[in-house]
Computed example of a mutant assay.
Amino acid sequence: MIDKDLFRKTEGRLYRYYRSITEIDKLEYKISLLEDQKQKIKQDMKETNIFIEEESRSITYEERVQNSSSCSSYAEKEMIRQIEKLERELKDTIRYSLKLKVKVRDIKKEIADIEYTVRLLGKEYKDLLEMKYRDKKSFEAIGEKLHASKSAAFDKRDEVVEAIAKLLNVRI
């Protein structure tokens, strides 16, 4: 039997591990949405789906002639402005996506050792860990799910946490 402090620390690592897995799932979902957004923005840029505001058009839909030193019409300026807006949006989307990918990699590095340890366990132990530390179920619910009593579920939890602590070579 391991001491209470080591047991508590190992349990804390398990709670953080399952929180991290949930966080990774959320981040990866956001990344996939951003990837879709990037493709849509690129498609808009290719098709140049530019909307010129109604007030910029004359009533007869003839282009206005402007006296300016830039030698470009309002429609041209508006198209350039809209394309630049899409380029900024694409750049921001790519930047945010890369930032999230870095965060996912960092989290995966942090949990690598405990993830490896959990993979070494049998299915029954993995199920118990998920119910207790991911789903935060009570020992009554865990016992019911495992077709065992509350105290048997409690003992199994002690057993698996101790095994993980030994596998991780956790020291006080």
Score class of each variant (00 low, 15 high):
residue 108 K to H: 05
residue 74 Y to S: 12
residue 90 L to F: 12
residue 79 M to G: 08
residue 99 K to T: 01
residue 83 I to C: 00
residue 48 T to E: 03
residue 65 V to L: 06
residue 40 K to Q: 07
residue 83 I to S: 02
residue 94 I to W: 00
residue 41 I to E: 00
residue 96 Y to S: 08
residue 100 L to V: 04
residue 58 S to M: 02
residue 49 N to K: 13
residue 63 E to G: 08
residue 51 F to V: 10
residue 97 S to N: 13
residue 76 E to C: 05
residue 76 E to M: 10
residue 43 Q to K: 15
residue 86 L to S: 08
residue 113 D to T: 11
residue 80 I to C: 05
residue 43 Q to E: 14
residue 78 E to T: 13
residue 94 I to Y: 02
residue 62 E to F: 03
residue 96 Y to Q: 04
residue 50 I to G: 01
residue 115 E to F: 11
residue 86 L to N: 05
residue 100 L to W: 03
residue 88 R to S: 13
residue 73 S to T: 15
residue 57 R to D: 10
residue 39 Q to R: 12
residue 89 E to C: 08
residue 51 F to N: 11
residue 91 K to G: 02
residue 106 D to N: 13
residue 71 C to I: 10
residue 67 N to S: 14
residue 114 I to T: 02
residue 96 Y to W: 01
residue 81 R to H: 06
residue 89 E to P: 00
residue 55 E to D: 06
residue 59 I to N: 09
residue 46 K to D: 09
residue 52 I to H: 07
residue 109 K to W: 02
residue 115 E to S: 15
residue 83 I to R: 07
residue 64 R to E: 06
residue 77 K to M: 15
residue 102 V to C: 13
residue 115 E to R: 13
residue 48 T to P: 00
residue 47 E to A: 10
residue 85 K to T: 09
residue 106 D to W: 08
residue 107 I to G: 01
residue 99 K to N: 04
residue 103 K to M: 13
residue 73 S to A: 11
residue 107 I to F: 00
residue 50 I to K: 00
residue 56 S to G: 14
residue 94 I to G: 02
residue 39 Q to H: 07
residue 81 R to D: 05
residue 62 E to I: 04
residue 56 S to T: 10
residue 81 R to V: 01
residue 54 E to L: 09
residue 71 C to S: 15
residue 60 T to C: 12
residue 89 E to N: 05
residue 73 S to E: 02
residue 97 S to Y: 04
residue 109 K to N: 13
residue 74 Y to H: 05
residue 40 K to F: 05
residue 75 A to R: 07
residue 40 K to H: 12
residue 85 K to C: 03
residue 79 M to F: 11
residue 57 R to F: 15
residue 106 D to K: 11
residue 62 E to N: 04
residue 80 I to Y: 05
residue 97 S to T: 09
residue 112 A to M: 10
residue 59 I to Y: 11
residue 39 Q to D: 01
residue 72 S to L: 12
residue 66 Q to A: 15
residue 61 Y to L: 11
residue 49 N to F: 00
residue 100 L to A: 03
residue 102 V to D: 15
residue 38 K to N: 07
residue 108 K to C: 06
residue 106 D to V: 08
residue 65 V to H: 07
residue 65 V to C: 04
residue 112 A to E: 15
residue 61 Y to R: 11
residue 54 E to I: 09
residue 112 A to D: 14
residue 47 E to L: 11
residue 75 A to L: 07
residue 69 S to W: 05
residue 92 D to R: 12
residue 69 S to E: 07
residue 52 I to N: 04
residue 52 I to W: 03
residue 66 Q to Y: 13
residue 63 E to V: 14
residue 57 R to P: 00
residue 82 Q to I: 14
residue 68 S to T: 14
residue 85 K to L: 01
residue 53 E to V: 00
residue 40 K to N: 12
residue 88 R to G: 09
residue 99 K to C: 02
residue 85 K to R: 08
residue 75 A to E: 06
residue 103 K to D: 12
residue 59 I to C: 04
residue 104 V to C: 10
residue 112 A to Y: 10
residue 100 L to H: 03
residue 85 K to A: 05
residue 46 K to L: 08
